[in-house]
């Protein structure tokens, strides 16, 4: 158990934790800021690495604006952020991968969704795959960390939680289920250091094909309620939406799983 490890800090080396942080974008004004979910990842990192072995890394292009946004994470307490210099249009995964290999953290935390760039994409998944580390998405809380495993609570829809035992090292993504990030303070934000680190640059071939547009709120599926009385309407409104018609597939092959997913997407009209 690491979290109450003040006493045995001498015998047990403190847990190495890394957090991937990106430059966020305010939903209303579009101003650069610390990204909401990444900040929550840092928050978990801070409580996990009470001993102080939390390192932050960012891969991307440097500008005064992005640096001010990254200082938002420093204002939470960590002393430095490693900034892997990646010009616009490069694939950040190789740079992050080699940084992670060199740093060798036991736990890598990041936001489930960034607010700009590719932080919102498959980065954590690809990283975990390339490194051969475990991956948990939608982390709510890390309960305990042992030598080779940790126990975490994963958030499921509608407030449900699932307790998982995860082999280390692991990449975990954090979203709205995790506790909110602490306030960012001006003093530590100014004093913290942004270490510019030169890193390999691989152009992102796939991204060149993409068009990028600001995300919009997805339309909500209307619930059609046929109710005769006010009481029924109230019950329908208050009831949690039963996921009807869904199925849990266990022990099926990848092929069968993929087919089931495709079938559902066609039924829902997502794929035509």
């Amino acid at each position: 158990m690491q979290r109450d490890g003040n006493g045995n800090a001498a015998t047990e080396p403190s847990l190495k934790v890394a957090a991937l942080v990106s430059v966020g974008r305010h939903p209303v004004t579009g101003r650069a800021r610390r990204a909401e979910y990444d900040a929550r990842a840092v928050e978990i990192g801070l409580s996990l690495a009470k001993g102080g072995d939390l390192s932050l890394v960012h891969a991307g292009a440097s500008s005064p604006e992005t640096e001010a946004a990254l200082r938002g994470y420093l204002g939470m307490g960590p002393g430095a952020v490693d900034v892997l210099q990646q010009p616009e249009g490069s694939d950040v995964v190789p740079a992050l991968e080699s940084w992670l290999r060199a740093a060798g953290p036991r736990v890598v935390l990041c936001g489930a969704r960034g607010e700009t760039g590719e932080g919102s994409g498959l980065v954590p998944f690809i990283l975990a795959e390339r490194l051969g580390w475990s991956l948990v998405s939608g982390l709510a809380e890390i309960e305990s960390v042992d030598r080779d495993t940790m126990t975490v609570l994963q958030a499921l829809p509608r407030g449900q939680r699932r307790r998982l035992k995860v082999r280390l090292p692991a990449v975990v993504t954090v979203d709205a289920a995790a506790q909110p990030a602490r306030q960012s303070a001006f003093g530590p934000a100014q004093r913290g250091e942004l270490h510019r680190v030169a890193s390999e640059v691989v152009p992102d071939a796939a991204a060149r094909e993409w068009t990028v547009a600001p995300a919009r709120k997805r339309p909500k599926r209307l619930k059609i309620v046929k109710a005769a009385s006010a009481r029924d309407r109230f019950k329908a409104a208050a009831a949690k939406a039963e996921g009807s018609g869904g199925q849990v597939l266990t022990g099926v092959s990848a092929q069968q799983g993929a087919e089931a997913i495709l079938k559902l997407l066609r039924e829902e009209g997502v794929l035509r």
């Binding site: 307490g77 602490r182 306030q183 960012s184 303070a185 003093g187």
Partner: peptide, 13 residues
């Protein structure tokens, strides 16, 4: 408290 601790209570943050 605000600029060093980052600890403005309640809605302060």
């Amino acid at each position: 408290l605000t600029m060093e601790h980052g600890n403005t209570p309640n809605k302060g943050r």
